[in-house]
Write a protein that binds this DNA or RNA. Structure first.
Length: 273
DNA sequence: ATTGAGACCTGTCGGC
DNA sequence: TGCCGACAGGTCTCAA
């Protein structure tokens, strides 16, 4: 489920009942998501106040009074479900692995059937030197992410553009759906070599400007729509629309599906070059 | 250095 | 109905 827009929706939903509130209790019902939880996980959270809560790429980062940061990643199937203050907390659902009881009265359940999600605690030092977090590319909706930055990152690369967009070191937050969507908006082929959006000097070509605009547009709209609602394939231009007509006016092409890096890519072979 | 394949884990869906 | 394979919005590791 979760790419940048979904993670941002989760952050927004949690913020009013999570940020600046104390963690009164933590139920750890399974301590093994993608990695085993760190030692003393529960004890290190117990009684801590969430001083700040932000999103970086697809990660959620909660800074605690202790200066440690609770790092959460939703993986493929993860979500954080909120029971608002004043409501009866429901019985734990299947695959509720960690449940936070906040001083706001809210109960927040981390649910993740496939357990590709991640939850850990990092000291400031280890946060700053984290091999993944410290090498993430720019936030796609920030001013740091522009055609020059994208072209520089793609310069000389022969890997297909779609694969490059999924590389979180190039741009952080795109996943399989929005990478395909952005390439369609930009009318760029997913198979094209990533390096072709840059000149040999590393300067952006026109396609790099188009792609950056498309990424920002696709993500901005998805965030605005508060994609936390249920998955509906008709919200997408190409994703999950194999054999259906291309939605670009006057294109007349048909959406195709093929595999790249072991994952499905959807695109229009007619208008995406 | 890049790149591709396989791994992790559970659920769902379509075909027989 | 039941079984089986294919596939799913992510990331990591390992080999070539």
């Amino acid at each position: 489920m979760p790419e940048l827009p979904e993670v941002e929706a989760v952050r927004l939903e949690l913020d009013p009942v999570f940020t600046r509130y104390r963690i009164d209790d933590v139920e750890v019902r399974r301590a093994d998501l993608r990695d085993r939880f760190p030692r003393r996980f529960r004890a290190r959270l117990f009684g801590q106040t969430v001083e700040a809560f932000r999103r970086r790429a697809k990660y959620l980062l909660a800074t605690l009074t202790s200066d440690e940061t609770l790092v959460m990643h939703l993986g493929m199937s993860g979500w954080l479900n909120v029971s608002p203050p004043g409501t009866d907390a429901p019985e734990p659902a299947k695959h509720d692995h960690v449940i936070f009881h906040m001083s706001s009265g809210a109960v927040i359940a981390f649910n993740d059937p496939r357990r590709f999600g991640l939850m850990t605690l990092l000291t400031p030092t280890r946060l700053a030197s984290h091999p993944v977090l410290s090498t993430l590319g720019p936030e796609p909706l920030s001013d740091d992410f522009d055609a020059a930055a994208l072209a520089r990152a793609c310069r000389g690369r022969k890997t297909p553009l779609k694969i490059a967009l999924l590389d979180q070191r190039i741009v952080a937050g795109l996943g399989n759906i929005y990478a395909a969507e952005a390439l369609h908006v930009a009318a760029l082929s997913p198979m094209r070599a990533a390096g072709t959006i840059a000149r040999v000097t590393g300067e952006p070509r026109e396609s790099a400007y188009r792609l950056v605009d498309a990424i920002k547009q696709v993500l901005t709209r998805a965030v605005a729509r508060q994609i936390s609602e249920r998955y509906r394939s008709d919200r997408f231009r190409v994703y999950d629309r194999e054999s259906e007509p291309c939605l670009r006016p006057d294109c007349g092409g048909t959406i195709r599906r093929r595999t790249q890096g072991g994952r499905s890519t959807f695109y229009c072979p007619r208008c995406q070059r």
